[in-house]
C-alpha cells in the first residue's frame, strides 16, 4: 500500500524502535522499580479557599509552623488559588473562553498565593520557584534551603484536558501537587485544608449533625462512597490508582496548631487516603 520501498528509514536502535508505543504488550515495564528521585521530599499543599482565603489569622500560624518545621524537614510548599480564581473563572466562562485558557488564568492566582507565602519565609532562604525550576532544579534549591514554594497548579495551561462535563479545568492544585509528589517519589504528601479530613457528609452543610470523620480510607472506596463534597479534588483519587510512589496522602486541618508538624513527623492527625 504505502510507497515504503522508496523511502529510507533512519532509526536509532532501541527496544521501542519502529513501535507505536501503543502496543500494550510492548510498553509494559520489565520488573524494574521506578527510582524515587527525592526520597526525602515532603510536599505540603496549602489550600486556596481553605487556607489562603482566610487571610492573616490563618496564614500566619500556618507559616510559623512551616518555618519551625524547616529545621527537621525538607519541603516543597505548594499553594492553591482560592476566591480570585473563582472570579476569573466566572469572567472567562462568561466570555466563552475554552478550558485551556481558564486553566492558565486560574494558575496565575495559585502562583500569586505562592509568592505571598514565599515572601513571608524569604529571610529563612525560601524562594518562590516557577514550574520549570521545580521540574529541573528542585534538588539544588532544596539543598540550599530546606524549603521552597511553588504553584500548586500543574503547568497544563492551554493543554488542559477538556472535561467530560462542563468547562472547569480538571487538573487543579490537588492534582498538580499529587502528580509532582509522585514524579519525585516524595516521602510524604500532605494537604493542609480547613477541615480535619474527610467526613461522611459535608461539614459545612446544614444536615451536618451526624458527621463522622473518616480516619483512613482507600481511594477507590472513597470514590465509591459518592460523598458530595470532598476536601480534596476527586481526580486525585483516580490518579492514586496508577501512582508509582505516593501510596498515601494525608489531609489535615491547618486551623489546628501542631497538625502540620505532626503530619510531617508521620503522625496520623487527619484523614489518610491510601491507594488500596
Amino acid at each position: 500500500m504505502t510507497p515504503e520501498s522508496t523511502f529510507v528509514t533512519k532509526d536509532v536502535a532501541s527496544v521501542f524502535a519502529r513501535q507505536t508505543l501503543l502496543d500494550r504488550d510492548l510498553v509494559r515495564q520489565p520488573d524494574r522499580p521506578v527510582v524515587r528521585l527525592l526520597p526525602w521530599l515532603n510536599v505540603v499543599t496549602l489550600g486556596g479557599r481553605s487556607i489562603m482565603d482566610r487571610g492573616a489569622q490563618t496564614i500566619i500560624p500556618v507559616v510559623d509552623e512551616l518555618r519551625a518545621a524547616m529545621s527537621e524537614h525538607r519541603m516543597l510548599i505548594l499553594t492553591g488559588p482560592g476566591i480570585r480564581a473563582r472570579h476569573v473563572l466566572g469572567v472567562g466562562l462568561d466570555l466563552g473562553l475554552p478550558t485551556g485558557v481558564l486553566a492558565s488564568l486560574m494558575a496565575t492566582e495559585a502562583e500569586q498565593n505562592g509568592h505571598l507565602v514565599a515572601a513571608l519565609l524569604a529571610e529563612h532562604g525560601v524562594s518562590y520557584l516557577a514550574h520549570g525550576t521545580v521540574a529541573h532544579q528542585l534538588a539544588v534549591h532544596l539543598s540550599a534551603s530546606p524549603a521552597a514554594v511553588s504553584n500548586g497548579f500543574p503547568p497544563y495551561g492551554i493543554y488542559e484536558f477538556p472535561p467530560t462535563v462542563g468547562k472547569i479545568p480538571p487538573h487543579r492544585t490537588d492534582a498538580g501537587a499529587f502528580l509532582l509528589a509522585d514524579a519525585y517519589g516524595a516521602a510524604r504528601t500532605i494537604y493542609v485544608k480547613d477541615v480535619d479530613g474527610v467526613y461522611t457528609d459535608d461539614p459545612a452543610s446544614e444536615s451536618g449533625e451526624q458527621l463522622e470523620l473518616v480516619a483512613r480510607v482507600g481511594a477507590a472506596e472513597l470514590l465509591a462512597m459518592n460523598i458530595e463534597t470532598l476536601p480534596i479534588d476527586p481526580i486525585v483519587l483516580e490518579l492514586m490508582t496508577t501512582a508509582k510512589h505516593v501510596k498515601e496522602i494525608q489531609i489535615v486541618s491547618g486551623l489546628t496548631p501542631g497538625n502540620i508538624t505532626k503530619a510531617l513527623a508521620g503522625e496520623h492527625v487527619g484523614t489518610i487516603i491510601h491507594a488500596g
Partner: peptide, 20 residues
C-alpha cells in the same frame, strides 16, 4: 509534546508518557 513535564499522568503499566 504537551508541557506536562514532571506533572504528566502516570500510565497504569510501565512509565511511557501517555499524553504525547
Amino acid at each position: 509534546m504537551p508541557p506536562y513535564d514532571m506533572w504528566q499522568h502516570v500510565p497504569a503499566e510501565g512509565v511511557i508518557p501517555p499524553y504525547r
